[in-house]
């Protein structure tokens, strides 16, 4: 608060002082005081008033600066009223009480909704685990009674399983840091497992996948990495063109990075849409033509990659190809 705004706050008091001084000056003059003496009194009074005003202002100013500093240091700003020292002046005390009540109500509200959110997430996770039992049951049943019908059922089950998995990972997105285990992961094994999990789905879609040149290993979390690869490969199948789908998975060490690239010969992405594919809920023109796109898959990939320290990049030419590149840092520190 600047001094001028402080003074303008005290306008009424100053005005009363000024009017009172005028009135008393007039009175003293009537009693026969000299103009010079009255002038002297004025100077004294002005000094006194100004001194008081300035002293008060400095006090206020110091107090405010202190409170601001406390606020700046706070991580959770809504705890301000609990942290800062209690005021001495009565007016400030009342303000303080009001603020405290307001913030208390707010924190209650926030923790209430946090609790609901957590409960909801726990319920979803629980539900997913329950879902896995019948899915596993169906898969085993189909595997034990192989026919063209059960193959189709398996394909559908794989799709259910993918969707369920996606919900689980979405629910866990907020707590990736609590749930990962960095190990040396062989890219070949990782990709192979993803392909094996979606075997029926991929075979039914007549996909041909080349993984022969994959050889590098990276340091990452196997489970999350598989999830990311899964999304990428499913996208390739979803957005295939009329040509037979061929996916090339290769890896290459480049300086401080190992790059895994997944290239398909599908629909590709328009240049104008390339920058937005990682946005939540973004469905490009390919997705709008009835492919039940949700705009969530690549968003999840991007978020996960950020948390795992992988940088993800997409290159594409519409109608020709799409390449998703994952760059894994190859730090010397990671070598055990």
């Amino acid at each position: 608060m600047s001094f001028s705004s402080y003074v303008s706050d005290k306008k009424a008091v100053l005005l009363v002082c000024f009017a009172g001084s005028l009135f008393f000056s007039a009175l003293l003059w009537l009693f026969g005081l000299e103009i010079g003496e009255i002038f002297l009194l004025w100077i004294c009074f002005i000094f006194m008033a100004a001194g008081l005003l300035l002293w008060n202002y400095l006090n206020y100013h110091r107090r405010l600066q202190h409170l601001r500093a406390v606020m700046d240091d706070l991580d959770q700003k809504y705890l301000f009223a609990e942290i800062t020292d209690t005021p001495t002046s009565e007016l400030e005390k009342s303000y303080f009480e009001l603020m405290k009540t307001a913030l208390k109500a707010m924190t209650d509200e926030v923790s209430q909704s946090n609790r609901l959110n957590r409960e909801y997430r726990e319920f979803i996770e629980q539900w997913i685990h329950e879902m896995k039992v019948p899915i596993t049951g169906i898969q085993l049943l189909c595997e034990n009674n192989k026919s063209s019908v059960t193959r189709k059922i398996l394909t559908q089950t794989e799709m259910i399983s993918q969707s369920v998995e996606r919900v689980l990972f979405y629910a866990r997105l907020g707590s990736v840091e609590k749930d990962y285990l960095i190990t040396e992961v062989s890219l070949k094994a990782c990709v192979s497992e993803v392909l094996a999990r979606n075997k029926q789905f991929l075979i039914q879609n007549n996909v041909c996948i080349h993984t022969e040149t994959l050889s590098d290993t990276v340091y990452s979390d196997q489970k999350w990495l598989q999830f990311i690869l899964n999304q990428i490969i499913i996208n390739s199948v979803k957005y295939q063109s009329a040509r037979p789908l061929v996916i090339d998975v290769t890896s290459q060490g480049q300086g401080d990075y190992v790059t895994l690239s997944v290239t398909d010969n599908g629909l590709g992405i328009k240049e104008s849409e390339l920058g937005r594919v990682f946005d939540k809920g973004f469905v490009g023109s390919n997705g709008r033509t009835g492919k039940n796109s949700t705009g969530i898959g690549l968003y999840l990939c991007d978020q996960l990659c950020a948390k795992l320290g992988i940088s993800i990049e997409i290159k594409s030419t519409a109608g020709e190809y799409t390449t998703v590149l994952l760059h894994f840092p190859k730090s010397e520190f990671l070598k055990v």
Binding site: K132, I135, T136, Q139, S161, D179, E193
Partner: peptide, 28 residues
């Protein structure tokens, strides 16, 4: 059916040899 890293770690540290989560792929 549980598949968090903690479950996996706990399973392996208690003497389990491997860990596979539902729904599992049969060849795997």
């Amino acid at each position: 059916g549980r598949s968090t890293t903690m479950d996996e770690l706990q399973a392996l540290t208690l003497g389990g040899d491997d860990f596979i989560s539902k729904p599992y792929n049969i060849p795997i």
